[in-house]
Design a protein around this nucleic acid. Sequence first.
DNA 1: CGTGCGTTTGATGCATATCAAACTCTGTGG
DNA 2: CCACAGAGTTTGATATGCATCAAACGCACG
Lengths: 234, 234
Amino acid sequence: MAMPLDRSLISGLPAFAGLAAGDLDGILAAARSSRFAKDSEIFAQATEAESFFLLLSGHIRVVRTTPDGEQVIARYINEGELFGIAVAMGQKNYPATAVAAVDCVVLCWPNAAWPGLQSQFPAFGANAYQTIGSRLQDTQARVVEMSTQQVEQRIASAVLRLIQQSGRKTEGGVEIDFPITRQDIAEMTGSTLHTVSRLMSAWEEEGIVRSGRQKVTVTNPHALMLVAENRRRK
Amino acid sequence: MAMPLDRSLISGLPAFAGLAAGDLDGILAAARSSRFAKDSEIFAQATEAESFFLLLSGHIRVVRTTPDGEQVIARYINEGELFGIAVAMGQKNYPATAVAAVDCVVLCWPNAAWPGLQSQFPAFGANAYQTIGSRLQDTQARVVEMSTQQVEQRIASAVLRLIQQSGRKTEGGVEIDFPITRQDIAEMTGSTLHTVSRLMSAWEEEGIVRSGRQKVTVTNPHALMLVAENRRRK
DNA sequence: CGTGCGTTTGATGCATATCAAACTCTGTGG
DNA sequence: CCACAGAGTTTGATATGCATCAAACGCACG
């Protein structure tokens, strides 16, 4: 794209908080933007990391595939977040695959630009490191969850996180604002689509959620919190 | 401690690779060293992070405790590793508790020294970030493991990791060189001490390990790898 | 020599995976 | 515009891995 990117694209993002207008222009000068159609791969696990990314719009699913083909969803990326920042962790290859959950627009920098950006705009680097740090915390919290809680609580927690981070208010509830299947939720929680389906049906009976094909709406977040904490009276 | 620390303490450590002798002195000038007796806490989960650390000798167990008192071992820290580096992740509090698994000696820097060290010795900062990055990868790999493998494979993988990272060669095998209980291994793998005990007894029958009170020796690492990959003929 | 912590082993139960099959959208092509 | 195909979902029946409950054992240390 020959057209220079406008700084208003990123000026409001937390990743760029505290940077001057001129700094933003400098950072954008090294970037280019691209579109990715729904279900296309932005990068693939184990391939050489050549770029790092920022999601401008859409939602991205980050997936790890095991040697025998099982998939685990590491996380969803929301608008405004950095992803694929292997370069900041000193990793040569991408540790996972990134797939567009809907049509997406991303900013993309060549890894070669990282050292310069990092030293020239320390606040930018610090934000990236903070992103990595909070992902480490999230991931460790997930290990604790998988070690100590049972499936129903884990699924409830996962759905709550999804609506907190990617929720869209509608009449009668908060909806996950990208298409998500029972299988996806199973891959986020170490469970199976059958179990997810059964539990969601039960929650629907209780008036906690409403759900359909690739769609989940939480109608009673408080009740779902009680489920997550295993405090609901059955 | 009034006595200046000698740079030979850290010159051989990977965390300080590529730093000049003068740099090492500068880094050490901001540090002090302390001893921690076996089973004492170096820092506690959720308390304000005031310092970051480097383990000079011994072994440290990093533990997360849930609201209802269950414990999960996040990792073991080996000699030469940084730990408690909340400051590098922009976290105000320690996310876990660090306990000396044996008597330990650690270097300790006040968090206030971080920005200066980071900017003055970029290689030092880069090493810290790489440490965080590889811990994120490890933790994500653990999530995948917990999602896709069953207990026997997870325990076998955990024991293999322990002997790779903290193994000591003895006659007849490689031994984990700090005291570790069945309960500890259970807390690393999301299992119970009963299950760990049963499996280790079975492995001992098969001549894969020898184990006793707070002690595990792997006599046949290859066979244990087969167990970890679920390839052993039963 | 006793006391307690770590370990072993057996019996039982349950949460959740697995196997199986039918059902229902939703988008597509004739 | 309708019919079909395929993907996603639901629901039932069965199986099983591992936790839980329970008790005894043995070594190490005071």
